[in-house]
Simulated scan of single mutants.
Amino acid sequence: MNWGKELRAFRQRTGLKQEAAAHLLGVSQAYVSRLENSTASPSTQLETKLERLLQEPEHRPLFEHFRTTISHSPHLISMLAEIDGKVHVDTVSEALRDHGAPFHLLTPGEVLESKNSDVIEILDAFLDLGAFSGRIASMQVTWTYDYEGEPVSHWRTTEIPVRDDAGRWYLHGAHVQITAEEKQQLLKDWGGPIKVRTFADDEADDAPSAANDTAAA
């Protein structure tokens, strides 16, 4: 096994700094750097520590456990990330992939691309609205999966921004299949395919109404 490559991939996936990895392994940060650059080879004892770090649950950051719950969820769930201005697939539940098209080809780490105009518009909106920078509380979208120009299925997806241990933002998406009539109603109710909820909306909901203030007085 290429331990340096595996360790770098693990750190990138979890947001673990080289200094933190060095502390867990009992080596210096400089040694971790050499290991990842393939200029150092681990001893048998260090290989055991690396294996534990990469595989045993207690050594995973909290967000890595969160990814695992998504992967094994019986629900239709995905998580997206923004990398270099493009939306990437981060995690996909087994149930979502097993559901079939259009989710069966989703591969973690790949850029999320589509020929469907609905999806292209929504992905652009994710970036324009700052969904990957913590600027919104939640977002609901409705879209259609087309195959060769013909609608196959209609969806309502709720996207919730979540942050990992390193402070990076992701979109946790829950997908529900709906009818064409339900999609049209959502488009009418929302005035378009996207409904954004801001933190100001949440604060307004939490604030007591004027009627309640008067009653309390």
Rank of each mutant, 00 (worst) to 15 (best):
174 A>P: 03
160 I>S: 03
151 P>V: 03
170 Y>S: 14
1 M>F: 06
146 D>L: 06
207 A>F: 05
178 I>E: 02
8 R>I: 04
60 R>P: 01
30 A>S: 08
18 Q>S: 02
142 T>Q: 06
151 P>D: 12
137 A>D: 10
188 K>L: 11
129 L>N: 07
187 L>Y: 07
65 H>R: 12
34 R>Y: 05
108 P>W: 15
133 S>W: 10
38 S>I: 06
13 R>N: 13
118 D>L: 06
35 L>K: 05
105 L>V: 15
29 Q>P: 04
195 K>I: 04
11 R>A: 11
135 R>W: 08
25 L>H: 03
183 K>W: 00
153 S>P: 02
12 Q>R: 15
24 L>Y: 12
171 L>M: 13
80 L>F: 15
186 L>Q: 06
185 Q>G: 10
13 R>W: 14
56 E>W: 11
12 Q>T: 13
108 P>V: 09
16 L>G: 01
44 T>N: 09
131 A>C: 15
130 G>S: 09
82 E>C: 12
166 A>K: 12
123 L>N: 11
123 L>A: 04
47 E>W: 00
191 G>L: 11
212 N>V: 07
58 E>T: 11
75 H>K: 09
172 H>P: 00
159 E>T: 07
107 T>I: 10
18 Q>A: 06
173 G>S: 08
199 F>I: 00
53 L>A: 08
149 G>T: 03
185 Q>Y: 00
7 L>C: 07
96 L>I: 05
193 P>D: 09
91 T>K: 00
185 Q>L: 13
216 A>G: 06
112 L>S: 12
183 K>H: 06
208 P>F: 04
3 W>S: 05
127 L>C: 08
71 S>Y: 12
19 E>R: 08
142 T>P: 04
